[in-house]
Simulated scan of single mutants.
Amino acid sequence: MDEVKELYVDSVQFSYFGSHPVLTGAYLKCRVGDVIALLGRNGCGKSTFLKIIFGSIKAQHSYILVNGKRINRAYWSGQVGYLSQDSFLPTNEKVSDLIRLLVDDRSMRNMVLNDVRIQTLQDKKVYQLSGGERRYLEVYLLICQPSDFLLLDEPFSGLEPIYKQHITALILKFKDKKGFVISDHNYRDVLDIATQVVLLQNGTCRQIHHKKELEFFYVPIGTFDKD
């Protein structure tokens, strides 16, 4: 029997110096094949939570297991990737050069280079890309890494609709090989592909079993009446 790959996060507590607690026991469990929508109001701590899981922010307390092993910094394990709201690509580098530099696996590298959308971008430098083109490239590059889990912070924010569709298609294409945790204010884009929904509220995580429940805690009453 194949080993179940799982990212397990529990009892995350965090507060900025001199402020009220942001997280008071946040919990999340993601397995390969999951697409988790991490929702919540502005300032509730979604980005902070993702950064703590990844390891770029240290919590006052956390219990994180990656594939059964406890870790302090997920990025040390190589099994968790993170897409921040800000671009991580050097702006003056050519797209084709970045793909060859950042994707070690030859078959994955050729797959990216032969992607119909990437082919039109290969000779451009990063600063010449549109927001959607750059985000699509970033998500694709992260997917091609050997990590089992990807944390995506606002992957759809500010993008033209066609690239929202392209990024959605990428996630669905690879969801059987990876687990995704996605936080985005464009909640409908995430709900459309989510296998489970988690609402971060008052420092803790609430499991949402039906999107109508979000009308009590997150969106206006009646939002999903026609869905």
Rank of each mutant, 00 (worst) to 15 (best):
G158W: 10
K212G: 00
L200E: 14
P220A: 00
I143F: 09
N42Y: 05
D192N: 15
P155L: 01
V32F: 13
D153V: 09
V197F: 06
F54S: 06
S183M: 09
R106H: 03
R117M: 07
R109T: 04
D153C: 04
P90M: 04
A26M: 05
V35S: 06
G68R: 12
L191Q: 11
D97I: 05
D2C: 01
D104V: 03
G203I: 06
G131A: 05
E154M: 08
L141V: 01
S147H: 12
V95F: 02
F14W: 02
L151V: 12
E215R: 05
V95N: 05
I193L: 11
L142P: 13
V190D: 13
Q119Y: 11
L113Q: 04
N110T: 07
F216M: 09
C44T: 15
V22G: 02
N67D: 15
F180G: 01
K51G: 13
Y8S: 08
V198P: 00
E133T: 13
V66F: 12
D227G: 07
L102M: 14
S62N: 13
A74S: 15
G222H: 07
L89W: 06
K212L: 14
D153Q: 03
L172I: 02
G158C: 10
G68T: 08
K125N: 13
F54M: 05
Q60I: 08
V103I: 10
A74R: 08
E133R: 11
V12F: 11
D148M: 10
Y82S: 14
L172C: 11
K5W: 01
F49W: 07
K211I: 15
Y218K: 00
S15A: 13
Q201I: 14
L199T: 15
S62H: 13
K5R: 12
R31M: 04
I36T: 15
S47D: 04
N42E: 13
A26Q: 09
S107H: 06
N42H: 07
C144W: 00
T195G: 12
D97C: 00
N114T: 09
N202T: 02
S130C: 10
F14S: 08
K46N: 03
S56G: 13
K69H: 04
F217S: 11
I182R: 01
K51M: 09
Y16S: 01
Q85H: 10
D148C: 11
S84M: 04
D86H: 05
D123E: 14
R73Y: 14
G222M: 04
M1W: 09
H210N: 10
S56D: 15
Q122S: 09
G45E: 02
Y136H: 06
V80M: 05
H61Y: 12
F88Y: 14
K164A: 06
M1S: 14
G40P: 00
G131T: 08
D86A: 06
S62E: 12
L200Q: 14
I71T: 15
S77I: 08
T48D: 08
E213Y: 03
L214E: 01
Q196Y: 12
Q128A: 07
R41L: 05
